[in-house]
Design a protein around this nucleic acid. Structure first.
Length: 461
RNA sequence: GUGGUUGUAGCUCAGCUGGUUAGAGCACCAGAUUGUGAUUCUGGGGGUCGUGGGUUCGAGCCCCAUCAUCCACCCCA
């Protein structure tokens, strides 16, 4: 036997980690439901053709494919060889693989809507919290298996949806205590107007990819990248002017209006952003004209959430409006808008900033300690009595030195010890010791329940 | 996919220019004391030095390969 291990980029979650993750997940889920979203879950795997081509060329390479079963069977061997030859040229073949692990939640959701649009009530608001898989090389804040939390509204073009999603982001991040997070917005329509002003709408993707890197590689490098796209000097200059726009949200909006006086698309994008900002007055939203986002299906307002500057971490959430997501699956005319929370990165950020509340680690309220077998038999029924009153407790199952029993309680961060010795047994009492303060009281056993119900109500949830 | 970092006990690490039975702290176990948790004392278990080759009289240390790890790029949450 070789040493056991787990696949690269995957993780086991200990009790401590699970509790912290659940703290994040339940906060997000609670808010999703408060805003009227209903859950959806889709399979871990999809048909490969559902996913291929939806995430761009790079994305396709990062999809985890599942090998077909039964390739060794005689009747399948020739086809398997054929499929393998094809795979060696870099192409996929259904002869070898026809299923894949899901890469995100949006495309499976679009597939679901396309399959069920006759039955769904629109506007359809769903949320989805599930793991996704990417064959990326792991590094900081990047895993091969991670959890996404998405909320989307489809079948509505109203900007109220964008406003609500922005408010939802704000509620979740403030409830998690993530002060200093940044919610950036922009509109793909402004970027599209920019591409148009450069004379070629086809360049939109190339331009967005280049300017998205501005804060990372700097203006000069961005200009070099733009020139490689065969843009002329005046066109690069135009983009530079665009990127140099600065000031408050209102000032930026005015500058954009001056930059594209003729563009109907720019006007539309500006109006949408203005409306969104009006609907979300009081929220700390920053208009970031350099925000582009890689995914090509976005067509309107786009969002991105950045971690507080004190932590080095990429985006911890993002989303935007798409006009025609289900069009990929043959169902036209269902516009939508959605956001996503990157739970694993939020976790890393909160860990770095020590934002997890201590009480998350308290599992059991009380541990029953005892001096010996007779004592443990005597208190055993009382453990059940407390449990039936919703008080989490446990009995130390072995006869051991008190030292050891107390250490056990200490390690499990159990706040109370109920100590049972021969003297207590004789008097039908017990000692309740508060393990945080060291204080202890001697109380009759029949008052134990009321004691803990009172203590429990004082503890945070 | 490209480039780099690291890999010694359960954990955190030390190991001088290659030289005898590879060490420390914490953790763990046992014993002493004790009706109360980071007290004290005594003793103890545990490491194929990531793995496989090579150089050498001799490798934890040098060379090659491989795996894992972390980081950067690409891309992204």
């Amino acid at each position: 036997m070789s040493k056991p291990g787990i696949p690269q980029g995957t993780r086991d979650f200990s009790a401590e980690t699970v509790k912290k993750r659940n703290h994040i997940l339940s906060t997000i889920r609670r808010n999703f439901e408060l805003y009227g979203f209903q859950p959806l879950e889709t399979p871990a795997m999809e048909n490969l053709e559902t996913l291929m081509g939806k995430y761009g060329e790079e994305g396709d390479k990062l999809i985890f494919k599942i090998l077909n079963n039964g390739l060794y069977e005689t009747k399948n061997q020739d086809k398997a060889r054929e499929g393998f030859e094809k795979a060696l040229t870099g192409k996929n073949s259904p002869l070898l693989t026809e299923r894949a692990l899901k890469y995100d939640l949006t495309i499976p959701f679009a597939r679901y809507v396309a399959m069920n649009h006759g039955q769904l009530t629109f506007p359809y608001k769903r949320y989805q919290i599930q793991p996704v898989w990417r064959a990326d090389r792991p590094q900081k804040g990047r895993y091969r298996e991670f959890t996404q939390c998405d909320a989307d509204i489809v079948g509505s073009a109203s900007l109220f949806n964008e406003a609500e999603l922005a408010a939802l982001y704000h509620d979740v991040f403030t409830q998690l205590g993530l002060k200093g997070y940044k919610l950036m917005v922009n509109s793909r329509k402004l970027l599209s107007a920019l591409a148009e002003a450069c004379g070629n709408k086809e360049l939109l993707t190339g331009i967005t990819v280049a300017i998205d890197k501005l804060d990372k590689i700097g203006l000069e490098k961005v200009k070099e990248a733009l020139k490689e796209l065969t843009l002329t000097e005046p066109q690069v200059q135009l983009i530079e002017n665009y990127l140099n726009i600065d000031g408050s949200n209102d000032e930026k909006l005015e500058s954009i209006a001056r930059l594209f006086p003729e563009s109907a698309e720019a006007r539309e994008g500006l109006t949408e952003i203005k409306t969104l900002l009006q609907l979300t007055i009081g929220l700390p939203i920053i208009l970031d004209l350099t925000l582009a986002r890689g995914l090509n299906y976005y067509t309107g307002i786009i969002f991105e959430v950045k971690a507080p500057e004190t932590v080095q971490m990429g985006s911890i959430g993002g989303g935007g409006r798409y006009d025609d997501l289900t069009g990929l699956f043959g169902v036209q005319g269902i516009p939508g808008v959605g956001i996503s929370f990157g739970v694993d990165r939020i976790y890393d950020v909160m860990e770095a900033l020590q934002l997890f509340p201590d009480h998350l680690q308290t599992a059991t309220t009380a541990l029953f300690l005892h001096m010996g077998n007779e004592e443990s038999r005597f208190v055993f029924p009382w453990v059940q009595v407390l449990r039936h009153q919703q008080i989490a407790c446990e009995l130390y199952p072995e006869t051991a030195k008190m030292d050891k029993q107390l250490k056990y309680a200490d390690k499990k961060r159990i706040p109370f010890a109920v100590i049972m010795g021969s003297r207590e047994m004789a008097n039908e009492t017990c000692i309740v010791k508060n393990l945080q303060t060291g204080d202890q009281v001697n109380i009759p056993l029949n008052e134990l329940t009321t004691y803990f119900l009172r203590e429990n109500s004082r503890l945070p949830n």
